[in-house]
Write a protein that binds this DNA or RNA. Sequence first.
DNA 1: TCATGTGAAGACATTCACAGCA
DNA 2: TGCTGTGAATGTCTTCACATGA
Lengths: 212, 212
Amino acid sequence: MNPVSMKTIERLINYRRALYQLQAEQKENVFSHQIAVRTGASSAQVRRDLMAIGYSGSPARGYDLELLLQSISEFIDADEVQKIAVAGIGKLGRAIIDYLRGRHPTLKISAAFDVDPDKVNRVLHGCRCYSLEQIEEVVTAHHIQVAILTVPASEAQDVAERLVEAGVRGIINYAPVLLYLPENIYIENRDMITAVEKTAYLARQLQKKGSK
Amino acid sequence: MNPVSMKTIERLINYRRALYQLQAEQKENVFSHQIAVRTGASSAQVRRDLMAIGYSGSPARGYDLELLLQSISEFIDADEVQKIAVAGIGKLGRAIIDYLRGRHPTLKISAAFDVDPDKVNRVLHGCRCYSLEQIEEVVTAHHIQVAILTVPASEAQDVAERLVEAGVRGIINYAPVLLYLPENIYIENRDMITAVEKTAYLARQLQKKGSK
DNA sequence: TCATGTGAAGACATTCACAGCA
DNA sequence: TGCTGTGAATGTCTTCACATGA
């Protein structure tokens, strides 16, 4: 199968979400334009994306909801349980652990890390907390490949390097810092200040355009 | 000036961050390739982006740090204070308020909204909390244009509509739901489950490629 | 008739490569 | 020499438009 672009991956995740919703509405099949309106894509785009993962529908009945969901999930999750670590158990880290617990069949938060000795070795929201010194040991032992970084800006680069050293391949970075890591590591920047700056800019543009 | 693409906006925000860092290191001017390595872009890309906002450097000394920072900020923030509302004061909402307070010269969290009567009319992290029924009134009175949505999934669409009705033009959506809003509203989806799904997928791909 | 699947065209984004300058 | 600014080339993504099928 051809390499699938990042944009397509993002949309597939959205399609899946829309499909679950349709499934809850007792639908059994779905047309590309129905997926399109619910996700903001065009119907041609939807068809291309589904083509990319090799799924085919029928002109008469569209796509089989059950089978399509299965195909997308197989493609995105690869039917493997992915273990995740959270580094930095401040307010945000705790909110994330709390929020993610048990929401997804193949994503499991397996460890938390923090400097604070009061938190180390305790179980927070059902998740064992370790010290930063134990990153190497714990990440390796659990085969953790994904980490969520919610440490203060000043620590982010250092902790990220340790995580990568221990085997982490993808980092979701909530710190307001640009990480400098090897090319073969995927970084998803989710800093909130950036998000607000961007949204504020675009809101202002839309305001102008609307009042013209 | 030509319409500047979304990608360029995102990169400009990153450049600005890198420039602040360089400024802290007592630098006074900077070359495109220096910005490039710190942000993961190419130097040609940096030059194109700066061209897009009409800023020019000199071949001899590169770009003047102070003036460049000023140009980017003028472009992104337009020297206006932007008022922001947070809807949904659960763990995540509180973490966000706490995190954003006083971090940025032109972004100000002006109001919070929640259903919980215990929270209404109290001041949380220096921010007054109102009931959802007051959205119209408060958003209009404060001229709030940007909202951060951290309500439960089941409420997200409804609350988003109310915010838009009251004048909000940009929404940062942390709920795991795709919002269905008019085209002239900008939506930045920041749902954490999506982020983890995507990162887990890409981490797995990099793993495969690395072991080949 | 109203879908899907898909070549081909078009729009958009990035990189190349070099003139011009200090 | 080593930079910026920028046409031109290349690469990537999206939409168009239509053959095909139930």
